[in-house]
Amino acid sequence: MPIDAARALAAEPRTAEISWTPRDVLLYHLGIGAGLPATDPGELRYTLETRLHVLPSFATVAGGGSPGVIRGLSMPGVDVDLAHVLHGGQSLTVHRPVPVAGTATATSRIAAVYDKGTAAVLVMRTEVADGDGPLWTDDAEIFVRGEGGWGGDRGPSARPAAPAGEPDRTVERTVREDQALLYRLSGDRNPLHADPDFAGRAGFERPILHGLCTYGMTLKAVVDTLLGGDVNRGRSCTTRFAGVVYPGETLRIRMWRREGRVHVTVGAVERGDAPVLTGMIVDHG
């Protein structure tokens, strides 16, 4: 069996030193669509080094190395075809504001392996700390088609539903045609997002946008719309990747404000609001 759950869970954590600079933060922000309009003071917080604030989701690419999905596939007990892999979900908790530049230690391990019958789900957990203590904890859910069925734990199935009633805010964000090509420069070089032939082998009509790019675009929309543009108010952001986004499409982002929490759903406008992100929750202060 390509996934040996017991071996994956028992494997020693892997530790690496990561570092980042303002240039990395600026590139990430541009990759998730910041900078439009280019002279807007709200956008300059993301694109000008003298005013730079770090969106918490930058933590998912800090250090410029392989994202959690790719790291998870290199762990002991995991041997699968990359073309069968999708990013199923993401959870990020920041323990304090992400600095504009830094050096830290990242410790990664497989925290859970779930048997979904026709697929397996791996949870790759990465905990990052610097000399002042914990910075963030990042969980990437790795969905592997065709690798389930060994009778293991199915894992949690309940997902938070969007609140009843009309959303408090709805905004639309356009995905540029070249956005996946720009976003991949922050570290995720999976050919699924750039190579048409590889995307075809994986069952897609053309390269798709990185799920974490949609995640970052959505978190930015929440911060800018409901959190007064204050990136430091966001404490955690959890979501399920319910569908793909193709570069050039438009995201419709619906937000429901609750005490200390924002519920979010995202759909692809051109495909009849086909779900893209569901069960997204942003906890804030």
Rank of each mutant, 00 (worst) to 15 (best):
F143G: 04
V25C: 09
G228L: 09
L122A: 11
A164Q: 11
R109K: 13
I281S: 06
A119S: 14
A129L: 02
T15Y: 02
T107I: 06
L135P: 00
S108T: 15
P275F: 00
I18H: 13
D132V: 02
P196R: 14
L277G: 04
R7G: 04
A242M: 10
L122W: 10
G216F: 08
H87C: 08
M75S: 12
G152R: 06
L122Q: 11
G229S: 11
M1D: 13
P191T: 05
A274S: 13
G228P: 08
G248N: 14
G63I: 01
T107A: 03
R7C: 06
T265Y: 01
W150L: 05
T15F: 03
R271Q: 12
T15L: 08
G260H: 11
R109H: 15
R51E: 12
S19H: 14
T39M: 04
P56H: 02
N232D: 15
P37Y: 09
P2L: 13
G131L: 03
V54N: 01
L9I: 11
P56C: 00
L227D: 10
V123A: 11
V100E: 12
T250V: 12
P99G: 05
V128H: 04
A194D: 05
G117A: 12
Q90G: 11
H53W: 00
F241N: 06
R96T: 12
A120G: 09
M75N: 00
R271G: 02
G243T: 13
L52C: 00
A8Q: 09
V264E: 07
G77C: 10
P2M: 13
C213G: 09
L52S: 01
V231Q: 05
R252H: 09
V269D: 00
Q90H: 15
T105C: 06
G279T: 08
Y215P: 07
E12A: 15
F198Q: 05
G248P: 14
V113Q: 04
R173P: 00
V269P: 02
A202T: 11
G148I: 07
L181Y: 08
C237L: 13
L251W: 10
R201C: 01
G89N: 06
T15Q: 15
P156K: 01
E127C: 03
G243Y: 13
T239K: 03
L52V: 01
R109D: 05
K116G: 07
R51V: 00
G89T: 06
G200C: 00
E172M: 05
D4F: 04
V69D: 02
T93E: 15
S186R: 08
D283A: 13
W20K: 09
S236D: 15
G285Q: 07
V98A: 09
L44H: 00
E172G: 04
A202G: 14
P275I: 02
L9A: 13
E270S: 09
L135H: 04
D79A: 14
P56T: 00
C213R: 06
E17N: 06
T60R: 00
V282E: 01
I110R: 09
R145E: 01
G33T: 08
A202Y: 07
A158P: 03
T126L: 03
I208F: 13
L277I: 07
R176L: 12
G35R: 05
E141A: 12
D79P: 00
G229V: 10
G279V: 07
D195C: 08
V25W: 12
L209S: 09
A202W: 06
R240E: 10
E147S: 12
G35Q: 04
E12D: 15
T105R: 14
H193T: 09
R45K: 11
G131M: 05
H29L: 03
A34D: 12
A101D: 12
